[in-house]
Design a protein around this nucleic acid. Structure first.
Length: 188
DNA sequence: GTTCCGATGCTT
DNA sequence: AGCATCGGAACG
């Protein structure tokens, strides 16, 4: 898949950790705003004690159990919108949280882009204008889609952030980030 | 540098 | 009650 091409829905319908890693370097486009994805986390099915899918399908997480390529947006801590991309095949729950983006276009301060604008999942949605209206939509429209990045970038994997309650699952290396990128949030 | 905490509202 | 957060204040 050449850099810049729009990813087809089938691209997302692969195992969640594969999708989470492959999304690093890709560009998320929402209307006239866009950001290069530099940090993601994979959330798996009911077996993953850190995943919203751990309680089975509910009103909130229902789309996680459907086919990949659909958005999953929810409110966290009463304040922040979280933007996820559903992954894996229909019936196999999974989603990828977009935790950080590097500004590409249309962000609040254009060229001398401040990396902090897209650092952290709550900042991602603020920067791109993503919210409840974008929940449950397929990522195959002009208004909302993902474009392929260049393969071969150096990617680091770590434990996921903020899921210490999840026992052994908290230690799984399901967070992916562009090595050393200034927009990547927090630790190593 | 660290740790703590309030804001704020939906989910289980 | 418990969060897949953030920014600011307080403290070493």
């Amino acid at each position: 898949m050449a850099a810049g091409e729009r990813l087809p829905l089938a691209w997302f319908q692969r195992p969640t950790p594969v999708v989470a890693r492959a999304l690093i370097g890709c560009v998320l486009v929402h209307g006239d705003r866009a950001g290069r994805i530099v940090e993601t986390e994979a959330y798996l099915g009911p077996e993953d004690r850190a995943s919203h899918a751990r309680f089975g399908p509910t009103a909130r997480n229902r789309v996680m159990f459907g086919p990949g390529g659909v958005t999953y947006v929810y409110l966290c801590y009463g304040i922040h919108q979280m933007f996820n991309i559903v992954s894996d095949r229909d019936g196999q729950a999974g989603a990828v949280l977009v935790r950080a983006i590097a500004p590409v276009a249309g962000l609040p301060d254009d060229p001398p882009a401040d990396p902090a604008v897209g650092r952290g999942p709550g900042k991602v949605t603020r920067a791109l204008g993503l919210g409840p209206a974008q929940h449950g939509r397929t990522l195959d429209t002009d208004a909302l889609h993902v474009r392929a990045g260049r393969p071969g970038a150096a990617i680091v994997t770590t434990a996921r952030i903020g899921v210490d309650y999840a026992g052994p699952w908290a230690r799984r290396r399901l967070r992916f980030a562009l090595a050393g990128h200034p927009a990547v949030s927090r630790p190593r």
